[in-house]
Simulated assay, not measured.
Amino acid sequence: MSKKVIGVDIGATKTRIGIVKDSEIIKEKTFPTSSNASKEKIIEELALGIKSLAGDDFAGIGIGVPGLIDEEKGVIFDLLNIPSWKEVHLKDYLQDFFKKPVRITNDANVFAVGEKMFGLGQAYQNFIGVTLGTGFGCGIIIHDKLYSGSFSSAGEFGNIAYLDKTIEDYCSGKFFQQQYGLTGNEAYKLVSSGDEKGKKMFMEYGKHLGEALKLILNILSPQAILLGGSISKSFKYFEESLQETMDSFPFQRVRKQLTIKPSEAQNMAILGAAALILSAEPELLKPQ
């Protein structure tokens, strides 16, 4: 059996596909997601994209999507940014097309699985992968296994009420947009230039994120919380206020054992998607 595995990251604006072998992406391609097209057209474009990149020389396909998934059946439900994807039997379609195994989960779960197999998560039995980007997502690893809950929806802490809105409004890119009228990228450029307003923004952001992570610590008490997504690249600008907020956690023995780190990996969306297949079939990891 081939030891190459396909990892797919389906987003609202673009789809990324990579061939993963020996823990590395050896070839990849990106193309626009036809978000407003029919579900059949989007599926066909995905299948043809995989075919053009890898042919049939791979062992399986792992996919991450930002939505609800019946992981056993491989059915995707109600993708907010792809209106036609109300109920998509993607696993059946791709398995019929390629005659290869297919596994699908939420994109935050993909990040956590990728960190467990390829990243900092290798050092921990129990950790949470938190993605900080346009949204606030969490993937949960318990005793070295992904816990995804019903419809891949475990860990949706971003929906919990916080202040006048939700955790996601204060702990994702929405914070910079709603509070300061800036995109996350614009906020990063501002703080990285040494601007005082930028520093203030990220200190404030770190306090809000600290409150969210204290909630996670109360509920799941992991060994580590690993941060991914575009905002995690700004970790040094909000680390101080984040850690200060975390220090108010009431159980200091629990607080002191907790590690909070940004991911060190590149392209974890593709690597993590491939890890869905590799974790199910570990023999594929053995050197040829």
Rank of each mutant, 00 (worst) to 15 (best):
2 S>Y: 15
3 K>M: 12
5 V>R: 10
8 V>K: 12
8 V>D: 11
10 I>H: 07
11 G>N: 05
13 T>D: 08
14 K>Y: 12
15 T>A: 04
18 G>W: 04
19 I>K: 08
19 I>D: 06
23 S>V: 03
24 E>H: 13
30 T>G: 01
30 T>D: 10
32 P>L: 09
32 P>A: 09
34 S>V: 11
35 S>L: 06
38 S>R: 12
39 K>G: 06
39 K>R: 14
41 K>I: 14
42 I>S: 04
44 E>F: 14
45 E>R: 07
49 G>K: 07
57 D>I: 11
57 D>W: 13
60 G>M: 12
62 G>Y: 08
64 G>Q: 11
65 V>Q: 02
69 I>E: 07
69 I>V: 15
74 G>E: 12
75 V>H: 10
78 D>E: 05
81 N>E: 06
90 L>K: 13
90 L>N: 13
90 L>G: 12
91 K>Y: 09
94 L>E: 13
94 L>R: 14
94 L>H: 15
97 F>K: 15
102 V>I: 13
107 D>F: 04
111 F>R: 01
119 G>A: 02
121 G>Y: 05
126 N>Q: 06
128 I>M: 12
128 I>A: 12
129 G>H: 08
129 G>W: 00
132 L>T: 01
134 T>N: 03
135 G>Y: 09
138 C>T: 14
138 C>I: 07
140 I>V: 14
140 I>S: 03
142 I>C: 06
154 A>R: 06
156 E>A: 03
157 F>R: 02
161 A>V: 11
164 D>W: 07
165 K>E: 11
170 Y>D: 02
171 C>R: 01
177 Q>F: 12
178 Q>K: 15
179 Q>I: 02
183 T>L: 06
187 A>M: 10
189 K>V: 05
191 V>F: 04
192 S>E: 13
192 S>Q: 13
194 G>H: 14
198 G>F: 05
199 K>C: 03
204 E>M: 04
206 G>N: 00
207 K>F: 00
207 K>P: 00
208 H>E: 10
211 E>N: 12
213 L>W: 14
214 K>F: 00
216 I>H: 07
218 N>F: 15
220 L>A: 13
223 Q>S: 10
226 L>F: 02
227 L>E: 08
233 K>S: 09
235 F>N: 01
247 D>A: 01
248 S>K: 09
249 F>K: 00
250 P>V: 01
251 F>C: 09
251 F>H: 13
253 R>F: 03
261 K>R: 15
263 S>V: 02
265 A>L: 14
268 M>L: 14
270 I>Q: 08
277 I>Y: 15
279 S>K: 13
281 E>C: 10
281 E>W: 11
282 P>R: 08
285 L>S: 10
285 L>E: 14
286 K>S: 08
286 K>G: 04
287 P>F: 11
287 P>L: 10
